[in-house]
Structure formats: C-alpha cells, structure tokens
Design a protein around this nucleic acid. Structure first.
Length: 493
RNA sequence: CGGGGUGUAGCACAGUCCGGUUAGUGUACCUGGUUUGGGACCAGGGGGUCGCGAGUUCGAAUCCCGCCACCCCGACCA
C-alpha cells in the first residue's frame, strides 16, 4: 500500500507509487467510487483554476471567445468523419435509456426498458462533431470568418487503464475550435496555439517542452497534422502535454460547412482544434516535486507565501498577529498571494511539514525572538534552505525571491532534460539507451512500419519530430534509409 | 480483456494457513491538562453489517461455493 513519501525517490522504479502517494497526501485528488474517475480536491482544483485563468487570458488576447456545447452527441455525428470515428469508437460511454423504475422483482431500481432512446447519445470524448454540426449554421460568408471559439468542459474517454490526473475516465480540459477561409491562415492558427501552450508550459509551469509534429501513427484522429509539446518527467518518461491540430477541410466536408468567398464562390472552410487538460497538473507534479512533497512554481501556486506564527500564549500571538498584519498588507500590495496560518489547533512543526508537502514556494516564520530583533525567518521550498532577515523591505526581497524560485525550478528541469537527452546512431545502442529513460534523438526513415517495429521491440514511440534545432539529414537507425532530421524517441505515459 | 494482488474503524494494517472469550494495533477524531523555533506528551473516551450472497458447523473475519469492488503489470490513450 501507500508507502511514506520519504521511502521512495522521484526517479526510482516506484515512481508511479510515489506519484500517486504524493497526489493523495498533498490533498490534490483521490480516486472516486466511479471507475477511473477522480475527485479533485480544493487544493488541486485551486491549481487548475490558476492554469485556467492564465490560459484563458492568453486565448482572449489572441481573439478567442468562450462558448459551451452539449455534453451529449448523437451517435450518428461521430460516424461522419471516418478517421475520427475509428480513433474514438473504442472508448465512448453511450447513453441508451432515459428513465429508471422500481424493480418489480425486488428492491432497488432498474433501467426502464420502455425508455430506450431511438438514437443513442455518446458522452463527448471530444467535441469536434457537435461543434462542427453547429458551425454549419454559424458560417455562410467570408465575413463570418475566422471563427475562433474555445470551450472549457469535461470529456469522457473509457480508457482501459487510468491514473490520477494523467489519464482519468472523465477529465477537464479546454478545447479550441476554429474555422478559417484559407489553408495558410488555419496552419498559422495551429502554430499560434502550440506556441501559446509552449510559452505557458515554460513560463508559468516552469516545465521545458519540445515543440514538434506527431508522426502519422500518433496523430489525432481526423487531423492532417498534429503539433505537440512533449515534456520529460523525472523518471525519464515523456508526457504529451498539449496538442494543436490542423484539420484541413476534413470536418468541413463531413459536416458540409461552406462559405461564400469574395467572388461568391462556395468553398469549404479550413479548421483547427487544440487542447490541454487536467493532465497538466500531473505534469507539474512529476516535473518538480521531491521526496518532501510538491514543489509548485510561484506563478501557479494557490498561495505563494505562507506565514506561520510561533508563540507560547495568547498575548504573544496577539503581538505576532499585529506584526504579521503589516507584512501581509505589504505583500498583497505587490500582488503576492499570502496565507497567514494562525490556527491554534496545529503546532508550528506540523504546519511546516504540511506546507512543504503542499509545495508552497516561500514560508515565513515569526516568533517572540523575531519581534525583539525585527526579523523574520524565510524558507524556500525549492532548495529547502532558510535564513533570518530583517523585516524592513522584506516584501521586495520576497518578490524577488519568488521570481528566483520560478527561474530556478525551470532551470533545474531544463538541466535534467539536457542530461537525459542524447543522440543515438545505432539500433543496438538504442535498445540499451532506452532502458535508461530520457529523450533519444535518432534518425528515422519516416515510415510507420519502422516506428511500429521499434515500438514492439522497445515500447518506445516517436514523441515528436522537433520544429526547432538540428536539421542535419542522416540514415535511419533501423533501415539505414535516408532521414531528413533526428526525431525524439522515448517511452511515454 | 489477460496476469498478479487486496478487501477488517476516517486512513494504514495485524488476525485468516490451523474455526472457539467482549475482533485488535498505529494514526486520525472527542474531553481534560502540560506543551508550542521542524509532524508534542500524559490520562480518559467514542467509533466495526470483518466487501456482498449462499453454505458447512454447537460456533465463521477464519473453511467451501458464487459474485462484486479496488490496486499493480500489460494491450489502449490527452
């Protein structure tokens, strides 16, 4: 069962146990009674809200509007786009009835066989089909384009195997769906959104990612091209953290969405879709955390600073309260979120451990000794170091410290990735190196057959064909056929 | 869906092989007191259809049969 966090290290074989343990102990989420679903607890949800708010701002800055579409999709919609149905058919929850009744043979309720739906409803695994059937009514002319819509929603995918945050039956996400007059404009949009994801991952989550194309076999069902951001977790496995799809005219044709151009000629629109999910919370946890618990980047921490008072009696607490009130006010004036935990029912030592486990970036402790000297103890989560500083100008120091922590954990993750990324030029080396985890940069002949062979031999897949970096051609490590550039192989979640 | 494992107090577990007092331990919870600069201590207290169903037996957490749920490892995937 769940071992103590300290017994397992993040990079050990028991990573999966460590991860699950951390999620539960840090009060982020727990397994629900419903198969493969999770309950996101308030602290975990607060992180999600920070993610949502930031992404939403970035979407709005680029002209996207939020809307909402139905949870249920008529079964026939899914079959309109051939690749799409093939990709999702195996994991759909289906509603077949709309009423229950008392079991005539005993206690409890049964599904009323009389209440069978004429057409079954699928609980959305993604919303392309219902949205495109709606877009058909919204688009007539080039003046209606581009149509830039985003929705924050839940989706359901009946996966065989689930894991908290990384792959749950139901998950929360945002899905953007856009329609454009030209192919060029749609591709530009697809790239704009993968760039936003990448910027968000690196600047806010402090998680370095590689931008690239998915190979044909890893591509989204129904897409012409899938762009992805790939991150490396501390156990050496890759995690697909966000995708942006260029859908061509596939959905426009399947749902008959045409517009009249400037000359009055009817054309099919060009589409994109893109999404990130609560999986990002899993990515955050697995990128930075250590054996003492979560390590949250200041930009996404529900509170950036926690203050713990140390006192022996009510009078002392009163004095500390007064001192802290001034500090809290100054910190808030600088836009720093602070929690002052002067709850009398927990000891300071308990609070220290608790906030460490929860990943609060900066902890301040203040007691009678500090009041005399006008000092305060400042502890940082990323390095687990602490120092005693003067209260004068402490707010500026903390503001800088938060920036420093944000930068430091990004750099740590970047260094780790660099140490786990290497070029491999023979298949024998590949088989040996893949066991150690990390990203392997290899030449590949571009065929699905070779990719499949490697996957069957080693469980490694092509995470992406990087957009940036070295583009030197070479020879495929398996077949020796020509390769345009190195691609990233890794084992993944 | 295949292989393995586990279901006993809010949580983590012992007890099951070899049936027999009132089902136990840690932790959490409640009361009182002493504590409070890294998960405090003492004393007292509450909390259980032993996963569900059927059977064997004078007697079942324990044995037999059936079912269910969850976890881990695969196949599948954001």
């Amino acid at each position: 069962m769940a071992k103590e966090l300290k017994e397992i290290t993040p990079r050990s074989k028991d990573f999966s146990q460590w991860y699950q343990d951390l999620v539960i102990k840090a009060d982020l989420a727990e397994n629900s009674a419903v198969r493969g679903c999770m309950v996101i607890k308030p602290y975990g949800f607060a992180i999600w809200e920070k993610i949502q708010r930031q992404l939403d701002d970035m979407f709005k800055e680029t002209g996207h509007l939020n809307a909402y579409f139905p949870l249920f999709i008529p079964k026939s919609y899914l079959s309109r786009e051939a690749d799409h149905v093939e990709g999702f058919a195996k994991e759909c929850a289906v509603v077949t009835h709309y009423r229950l009744k008392n079991d005539p043979n005993g206690s409890g309720v049964i599904v009323d066989p009389e209440a069978k739906l004429e057409e079954e409803l699928v609980v959305r695994p993604t919303s392309e089909t219902i949205i495109w059937s709606t877009f058909k009514n919204w688009i007539q002319s080039y003046r209606d384009l581009p149509l830039l819509i985003n929705q924050w929603a839940n989706v359901v995918r009946w996966e065989m195997r689930t894991r908290l945050f990384l792959r749950t039956t139901e998950f929360l996400w945002q899905e953007g769906h856009t329609a454009h007059a030209t192919k060029e404009e749609a591709i530009e949009e697809t790239e704009r959104m993968i760039n936003i994801y990448s910027e968000f991952a690196e600047k806010y989550m402090a998680m370095p990612v590689v931008k690239g194309f998915k190979s044909e076999s890893e591509r989204f069902a129904g897409a012409i091209d899938t762009y992805t951001i790939e991150a490396l977790m501390q156990d050496g496995k890759a995690l697909q953290s966000g995708t942006s799809h260029f859908l061509g005219q596939n959905f426009a044709k399947a749902f008959d969405v045409q517009f009249a151009d400037q000359t009055g000629k009817l054309e099919y629109v060009w589409a994109t879709s893109w999404g990130v999910s609560t999986r990002l919370i899993g990515a955050l946890i697995m990128s930075h955390s250590d054996d003492n618990g979560l390590v949250l980047p200041p930009k996404l921490a529900p509170y950036q600073v926690v203050i713990v008072p140390i006192y022996r009696n009510a009078e002392q607490l009163q004095l500390v309260n007064e001192k802290v009130a001034g500090i809290v006010q100054k910190l808030k004036a600088l836009g720093i979120s602070v929690k002052y935990d002067n709850a009398d029912n927990k000891k300071p030592g308990w609070k220290f451990s608790e906030y460490e486990l929860k990943g609060v970036p900066v902890r301040l402790a203040i007691g009678a000794r500090d009041l005399e000297n006008n000092t305060i103890e400042v502890a940082r989560r990323d390095t687990l170091t602490k120092e005693t500083l003067s209260c004068d100008g402490i707010e500026d120091h903390i503001k800088n410290l938060l920036d420093e922590i944000q930068e430091n954990i990004y750099k740590k993750a970047l260094d780790f990735r660099a140490s786990q990324t290497r070029e491999v030029d023979s298949y024998d080396d590949f088989k040996r190196e893949i066991e150690k985890g990390g990203f392997l940069l290899c030449h590949w002949d571009g065929t699905a057959e070779t990719e499949e062979l490697i996957k069957n031999d080693t469980k490694a897949t092509i995470r992406c064909i990087p957009l940036e970096g070295d583009k030197t051609p070479g020879k495929c490590i398996v077949t020796g056929k020509p390769s345009k550039q190195r691609v990233i192989f890794a084992r993944s979640y």
